[in-house]
């Protein structure tokens, strides 16, 4: 008898967009600071996070790292999994262009090594994995827009094939002062009130901050 794959659930979500941070679709922080760096640093202070390297990250990494901290807070028991069973799969539209442009500007004088190291979008995954000691499969995709169907398929495939048991996945987009991140904590098994990891539910959460 062939066993059916175990259900995969969204056990937490975090959205940061338009000056507001949402955890599990509830607003938990708001700050009208128009500058994206100032907004992210204000959120970092508000949640009393302690990670000095945060200040050195580019804005894309700050955004993804901060969203992951809040996604996992009170929702994730890392001890349940081996480090290699926890993965990170992210996507965005602008890649690392925000930092690429800033780096290009410095290169006209003396190129900044601290900016250069952030001129790839997958560095945000590195920052998350270093912070939480995750060693599982990871990938960063660049799409014109968020593709819930792709995310569902790709992550479900990793979990159903026992490559991962848990995955942080979603969208981390930032260019100039425009930003939106929607992250999902996805785990095998679970039960209500957790939400099934389906294209429809992913899209519902992705669009939830629009009201």
């Amino acid at each position: 008898m062939k066993l059916l794959p175990e259900d995969i659930y969204i056990t937490a979500s975090c959205i940061i967009s338009h000056h507001v941070v949402y955890k599990n679709e509830h607003a938990i922080f708001e700050n009208k600071e128009p500058d994206v760096t100032a907004f992210l640093v204000a959120a970092y202070h508000h949640f009393q996070l302690q990670y000095p390297k945060f200040y050195k990250m580019d804005n894309l990494s700050k955004l993804g790292w901060l969203a992951t901290e809040l996604l996992l807070k009170d929702s994730f028991h890392a001890g349940k999994y081996q480090p290699e069973a926890i993965g990170v799969v992210l996507a965005n539209a602008s890649s690392s262009l925000d930092t690429d442009i800033k780096y290009y500007e410095t290169a006209k004088d003396i190129a900044s090594p601290a900016l250069f190291v952030y001129t790839l979008p997958n560095i945000v995954i590195g920052e998350i994995c270093i912070r939480h000691h995750f060693n599982g499969e990871n990938a960063f995709f660049v799409f014109d827009e968020f593709d819930a169907g792709f995310m569902e398929q790709y992550v479900s495939n990793l979990i159903n094939n026992n490559i991962l048991q848990s995955c942080i996945c979603g969208w981390v987009e930032l260019l100039d002062d425009q930003y939106k991140t929607v992250l999902f904590l996805v785990e095998k098994g679970g039960s209500a009130p957790n939400i099934l990891f389906t294209k429809k539910n992913i899209n519902k959460i992705y669009q939830s901050e629009n009201g």
Binding site: P52, D109, I110, S112, P113, A114, V117
Partner: peptide
């Protein structure tokens, strides 16, 4: 102070700038 290799490069930039 816990600086790393990228910080070392930034210190070289500081001396130059």
């Amino acid at each position: 102070l816990g600086l790393d290799s990228i910080d070392a490069l930034e210190l070289i930039v500081l001396l130059q700038q």
